[in-house]
Design a protein around this nucleic acid. Sequence first.
DNA 1: TATATTTGTTAGCGTTAACTAACAATCTAT
DNA 2: ATAGATTGTTAGTTAACGCTAACAAATATA
Lengths: 137, 137
Amino acid sequence: MISLSSSMEDYLEAIYEIEREKPAVRVRDVARKLGVTMPSVNGAMKNLEALGLIRHGRYEHIELTETGSVHASRIATRHRTILVFLTEIIGVDVETAESEACRIEHVLSAATMDKFTDYIARNLPDPGIEITYEDSE
Amino acid sequence: MISLSSSMEDYLEAIYEIEREKPAVRVRDVARKLGVTMPSVNGAMKNLEALGLIRHGRYEHIELTETGSVHASRIATRHRTILVFLTEIIGVDVETAESEACRIEHVLSAATMDKFTDYIARNLPDPGIEITYEDSE
DNA sequence: TATATTTGTTAGCGTTAACTAACAATCTAT
DNA sequence: ATAGATTGTTAGTTAACGCTAACAAATATA
């Protein structure tokens, strides 16, 4: 099981999101999305490439590998879960929730995440949200 | 408003807790509680002293200042709130919740903490009502 | 009291991860 | 085709924060 730092998880997640927004992911996009400089992205990309999570030729665009994609989507799911939880259940405003989800997503165990998912499924006040969970009733 | 790193908050909180367990707080105690070496504690103490949050003479015991105490108790309260939330509401086991509370406590805004407190107050399982927050099948 | 053990400190190193400055490649538009 | 803008890279710095090794003070004990 690959274990990544919060920082590397952020990069991976950013790439994953940009992949869904644009035809190609470039260093510049990642830098912009995360609010860091391009050299920082460059260093991180070397790191993620060494871990087999992305492919990135010099001056080329960035791609997630299969493994990288699996990891990234796991992180993205955590993010969404925490976001829904904070906004829909706890009542935190979207902006705050967004920024706090970014940090919480790195610190919860898989087991706790599952409990969150279950709890949300059973307690969502408004069932008409675009994410559907299993019927628990 | 003083802003501390997660690491410094951990040290402050540890001192606060040890103060309630023992007559004097020593470098050794903090090191043991946080699972770091004494030199690490030493460095952190210099840091916290420079910030006016503790007093610590060479080879002497460690004390929280008034400001330090206020900060530390705020962190401790966050910790307890998150712990209660994870165990009582979400149903995470105490051990996992303890370790995750340690990390979440550093990343939530005061506003979000308030929402959590409110939510807990409104949703703490009441012995008189049949609410299940664990999978009870 | 002298020595051993425990506790505290200092110095110096390694890692992570950000940054700036300078340089290189690529792309765009004339 | 080439000048200028944009994007990417490299090198080197900085800061936080952990560590080990070595030394110093304090405490306990023979």
